[in-house]
């Protein structure tokens, strides 16, 4: 019961309260770049969730099974980024071979994901949060991905409506997106007291 409670609070926390994009500023580049249309945003979100779950789990395993017992924590960053890069490559190859339609729809985002700070950020936060068990690591990774998807889809929805609005010229493009993101993060701050 206690484990379930910890998992649920952890999940809610990483999706709503410690949302990677809106409170930790991770993954801002795709957040600004790909949030123009809602279907693209959703595709990106799915790809990120997938890779994040995979690399979050893998890096947790490597961290706890190899690096910590051997005392090699100093090479942690190098290992993490290599794991993420290879995970992305593998996923890309696998999809191209076995699921061509899926590859067509979100394969184009995959190379971008290697340099998506949300992935590496989550792997580092898993370590920082002192995640105790593999199950917890998996749940938090999925939560991080869902949080990202949610944030980017909300943003895309707002931006589709912004197309019809007369935005002052200097604010067009990135500035108005950032200001919208600011107001969104203000809204997400309201979740902070719920647990």
């Amino acid at each position: 019961m206690d484990t379930v409670y910890i998992l649920i609070t952890g999940f809610l926390s990483v999706v709503l309260i410690n949302n990677l994009v809106l409170t930790k500023f991770l993954g801002i580049c795709p957040y600004l770049g790909v949030s123009g249309r809602i279907d693209m945003a959703f595709g990106m979100g799915l790809a990120v969730t997938f890779v994040m779950t995979l690399s979050g789990t893998l890096t947790w395993l490597i961290d706890h099974m190899i690096l910590m017992p051997l005392g090699l924590e100093v090479t942690r960053y190098v290992c993490f980024i290599l794991v993420i890069a290879s995970a992305v490559q593998l996923v890309e190859m696998y999809l191209r071979k076995f699921f061509p339609p899926l590859y067509e729809s979100f394969g184009i985002f995959l190379p971008l994901i290697t340099t998506n700070c949300a992935i590496l950020g989550l792997c580092l936060f898993l370590n920082l949060w002192g995640t105790e068990s593999l199950l917890e690591a998996v749940v938090l990774s999925v939560g991080g991905g869902i949080g990202f998807t949610m944030a980017i889809c909300i943003m895309a929805g707002i931006r589709e409506n912004l197309m019809m609005v007369d935005v002052p010229e200097p604010l067009q493009g990135a500035p108005i997106t950032l200001i919208t993101a600011g107001i969104l993060s203000l809204a997400f701050m309201g979740f902070a007291g719920i647990i």
């Binding site: 809106l22 409170t23 500023f25 604010l171 990135a174 500035p175 108005i176 997106t177 950032l178 200001i179 993101a181 600011g182 107001i183 993060s185 203000l186 701050m189």
Partner: peptide
């Protein structure tokens, strides 16, 4: 966080 987004915007 909200201040970061607004100021940069």
């Amino acid at each position: 966080p909200v201040g970061a987004f607004l100021t940069l915007g």
